[in-house]
Design a protein around this nucleic acid. Structure first.
Lengths: 165, 165
DNA sequence: CGCAATTAGTTTCATTTGAAACTATATTCC
DNA sequence: GGAATATAGTTTCAAATGAAACTAATTGCG
């Protein structure tokens, strides 16, 4: 049965349009993304007491230390309130340290502490393992396709979003 | 530049693993899905005062009337609390009607009212148009690829999710 | 039958979230 | 220099959310 998203649009004898939610891409994306996020969140939370926002922050700080909260927000696609709150938790747990910026009094530089780094070093393999399990349904060429499609769709979605803002 | 998700895993000279959030599939999926949902939610909300849960309920009732709240929850991937609340709004707005089931006193059959159907008939073309704009970044064969990949990933994600539950 | 266990759906309550207001610092421009 | 504007980050407050308790009806089973 061909089920391309392009075929979602149907008209019966009467002239009203129909929509099949299961084939509607925004819906499918949302369900897929939630399933994946939930499965992963459970692991992060069970094993390390990390929420997804916290993990995202640790992930970027692990790769690039000394970012400001604003930088982190940009790179994690979170808003500044979310970042502020998640950083607060991470600081309380001594996983992230805040230090004043030498030049700009408004900015605080963020970095993983040794403790945070140790957790990061444990979480990264777990995250990559989960990604791998998830992707194990695909062949190498399918993964390449997926990568290309995601890039195109992300660009397109960015355009969509900007239009309405 | 090859950027397959399979290549996300890297080790430097030192032996700690690194993770590039921008190439991490769960993250990419989440950002993409949110962008799309937000763009669409804005339209639904601006033009019809519909939230996404409300729209999902109307979408399934438009295709299959006389479902119970439980049926709706199943088909929309929402939980029963969400459905209960969104249905409440829809009923108050006279877009959906609740009628008692003849056989089972616990069940209420849900269906679009004439008013709800009129809105449905307007929203469906809008939804399909937005999907089309979004997919316009892809060729026909890319759409087919996407469809196949989403199906595989969804199945895989369902397995992942069940495992942990 | 009649009591325990299930199921449909709602409500409650605590937590999460986001928008807007707020504080503090920095920059612009007269 | 200093008033107006902009930016970093936090706090506040109201709305959205979810887990668990709850109500009401049904089913299973001795």
């Amino acid at each position: 049965m061909p089920s391309s998203a392009a075929l979602n649009f149907k008209r019966g004898r009467e002239r009203e349009a129909r929509l099949d939610l299961e084939r509607f891409l925004p819906y499918r994306l949302s369900v897929l993304s939630n399933r994946v996020s939930d499965a992963i969140a459970r692991e992060y939370s069970d094993r390390f007491g990390l929420s997804i926002p916290e993990w995202r922050i640790m992930a970027v700080l692990g790769g690039t230390p000394s970012l400001s909260a604003r930088d982190v927000a940009e790179r994690t696609a979170m808003d500044k309130v979310q970042v502020s709150r998640a950083v607060e938790c991470l600081v309380r747990a001594r996983r992230v340290a805040r230090t004043a910026d030498a030049e700009d009094g408004r900015i605080q530089r963020l970095a993983l502490t040794a403790k945070g780094r140790a957790i990061y070093d444990e979480v990264v393999p777990l995250a990559l393992h989960l990604e791998e399990v998830f992707l194990s349904a695909l062949s190498a060429s399918e993964r390449a396709q997926l990568d290309a499609l995601m890039a195109k769709l992300s660009r397109q979605a960015r355009l969509l979003g900007d239009g309405g803002k």
